[in-house]
């Protein structure tokens, strides 16, 4: 794992209920899980991530697999919690209005902070323009580092369907970029902040 500890030891300790192992897993997986929920426009991404990890920790004794399998399993739970949250709120997720707590990301150089802020806001805006399924596929592939098959399993779809969603999502992103270039001109790239 990223902490340098053998995954099998951490998993065995976590399955036995050791707090330190929970901490290791949480620090390793929580940023991407919380980011996934936040970029999906979850109203309370931190609470939703907490519910996800409580479910993960209490269900760990029944888990078996390697680190990739654990990551896929955690994001499967997070995705289902997100769907349940959408259904519970009975409304379409509000994406891009809440770019998250930027104060946590900022600090130090003012110019860099501004660029990060703009970049984060740009990412949220691009994600908000994507349909839910396309956004899920792209975010699960980017943040969770899941394969096509793992994404299909997490979303309850076929692999072919996931491939199609990814293709359409990437096309939508390119279309947004091209439209923005046409509006502001070729010299001022609208997503220049993403390239830094």
């Amino acid at each position: 794992m990223r902490t340098g500890l053998p995954f099998d030891d951490v998993l065995a300790a976590a399955q036995a209920g050791a707090a330190w192992a929970f901490e290791v897993l949480y620090r390793s997986l929580s940023p991407s899980v919380t980011g996934y929920l936040r970029l999906h426009g979850a109203v309370e991404p931190d609470d939703l991530a907490s519910e996800t990890f409580i479910g993960v920790f209490t269900g760990l004794p029944g888990f078996s697999g390697d680190e990739d399998a654990l990551r896929a399993w955690v994001f499967t739970i997070a995705h289902r919690r997100l769907i349940d949250d959408w259904r519970r709120r009975s409304r379409r997720p509000q994406v891009a209005d809440d770019p998250g707590d930027l104060t946590e990301l900022l600090g130090g150089d003012v110019e860099d902070d501004a660029l990060v802020g703009v970049g984060t806001e740009t990412v949220h805006r691009l994600c908000a323009a994507l349909p839910d399924d396309q956004r899920s596929v792209l975010l699960l592939r980017i943040l969770a580092d899941l394969t096509m098959e793992q994404v299909a399993s997490a979303m309850g779809r076929s692999v072919a369907s996931v491939k199609a969603l990814q293709r359409r999502g990437l096309r939508a992103l390119r279309t947004q970029v091209e439209n923005a270039e046409e509006r502001v001109g070729a010299n001022a790239h609208p997503y220049e902040s993403l390239r830094r």
Binding site: Y26, P31, G35, D46, S50, F53, L105, T120, V123, L138
Partner: peptide, 12 residues
């Protein structure tokens, strides 16, 4: 950029 936005753990 997506990966860059997901670097900090959430508040439990």
């Amino acid at each position: 950029a997506v990966r860059a936005t997901a670097t900090l753990p959430g508040r439990p």
